[in-house]
């Protein structure tokens, strides 16, 4: 298992290959999810992500522990960037390994749902009009209720 919070970009292909190669035998399903910077309104100059060093890693490990209580998982990887990024850059990824795909898919979705509203990251959008903190969405909070 690994949780990494970094400002540098990551290589999705290299991460995914290394993740698959590191699995013990019998892991028949690997799911990866990647989050990408969206230019929602047009004119995005940069996306800035702030986080709470220390608590971020702690919160991500807790979310992973929770996922492990619910599904039969092999490794779990969470990589999340902070700092400034441009539209279409990769912000974060999760990977899950399991014997069967249902566990891998569901655990990846669970990790994403919790990561969005329970890990201390905040997004700020910079445009030609200035900079604004992205507001949390009710749908993201509601998404937790299904688990």
């Amino acid at each position: 298992m690994a949780v990494r919070v970094q400002s540098d970009p990551f290589d999705l292909g290299a991460e995914a290959n290394a993740f698959v190669a590191a699995q013990a035998g019998g892991m028949g399903a690997i799911v990866t999810f990647t989050g990408v910077v969206r230019d929602v309104a047009g004119g995005l100059q940069a996306m800035e992500i702030e986080h709470y060093p220390g608590m971020t890693e702690r919160a991500l490990h807790k979310i992973e522990d929770e996922a492990r209580d619910r599904w039969q998982l092999g490794d779990v990887l969470i990589v999340h960037r902070h700092g400034r990024m441009q539209a279409d850059e990769m912000i974060m990824m999760v990977a899950t390994a399991a014997r069967h795909r249902a566990d891998a898919f569901e655990a990846a979705q669970f990790l994403m749902d919790y990561l969005k509203s329970r890990a201390p990251f905040w997004k700020k959008e910079h445009t030609g009009q200035g900079a604004d903190w992205v507001a949390a969405r009710d749908e993201d909070e509601d998404a937790l209720k299904r688990w």
Partner: peptide, 8 residues
């Protein structure tokens, strides 16, 4: 203290 989180 912080606003609701917006990761992912």
């Amino acid at each position: 203290f912080f606003p609701p989180m917006t990761g992912g």
